[in-house]
Design a protein around this nucleic acid. Structure first.
Lengths: 141, 141
DNA sequence: GGAATACCCGAGTAAATAGGTTGGCATTTA
DNA sequence: TAAATGCCAACCTATTTACTCGGGTATTCC
């Protein structure tokens, strides 16, 4: 019942981009150093986030990454789904994907997993990067 | 962000015991057949549930397993914690175990994981085996 | 234009975890 | 005492995780 480092690193990287929104692109190297993440590994994560339309990349010298939309329009759930796949504690209740388990009709356990899934999604879809920025800035005081 | 088959099998096995509470012990073999679970694998799970005080075993011929307390006093969360360990989407916010991440003070991501953890525990600790039994019986009609 | 700075992409790999299996012993009932 | 059952520890294999590696390609600065 754990998230992997993909989610952890990805969220921290996105938060760093959010805190610097509007200040020009930030290079992969900078983020990797600040967050203590392996550079080539983080590159893979950012590639996924780019394909998902959450970040934009600028190539060449002085290039880097920036958020593709405003921090208030990016939810933690968007990042998690991109990096970890659809949310759900069990394959039989995974979002969007109606994998029919042959027990689906009678399985009472399934109802439990659905409730767990919904409680998770309601949390992660309610928190935006902008909110996290606000909290981060508050702590600096 | 997935639970393993341990949780799935364990919960289904516990539900079967709950549905037959008061009718004498049920053998490992019977449960494994009814639930389509590998017998020696299920044995490991029940051993854990026994050590956790959730089921009792009766040895010898005509022996088997039964719930160690009333189904209304066994929560889904008890079963999950026994079979999957303490609940938490990330090691830094795992229940009871205060593994201090060196970022703990400043990490904004941590706050997110705590909210996720709490939303999960509030669901799994609110559902008892008795409630699941009630729902199962309702469906039979 | 050329060097330096970046991102882009597909493979490969070591360690951990998941999901079992195997085999033998202990206890109870018929 | 034989059959039925639970108890226990060790072993095994496929998958996943968390990386690394070795090349590309685009852009900017001098």
């Amino acid at each position: 019942m754990k998230l992997s480092t993909r989610a952890e690193y990805g969220l921290r990287a996105m938060l760093e981009l959010a805190l610097n929104q509007g200040k020009g692109p930030i290079s992969l190297k900078t983020i990797a150093e600040n967050q203590s993440i392996s550079e080539p590994y983080l590159e893979q994560l950012l590639a996924g986030l780019r394909r998902a339309g959450l970040v934009e990349s600028i190539r060449g010298a002085q290039g880097g990454y920036r958020l593709a939309k405003d921090a208030s329009n990016i939810k933690v759930g968007d990042i998690l789904r991109t990096l970890e796949g659809p949310i759900g504690p069990m394959d039989c209740v995974i979002e969007d994907d109606i994998k029919v388990c042959h027990r689906a009709d009678t399985c009472v356990a399934r109802g439990v997993w659905e409730k767990v899934r919904d409680s998770i999604t309601s949390v992660v879809d309610s928190i935006s990067l902008a909110q996290m920025c606000a909290e981060a800035k508050q702590r600096e005081e």
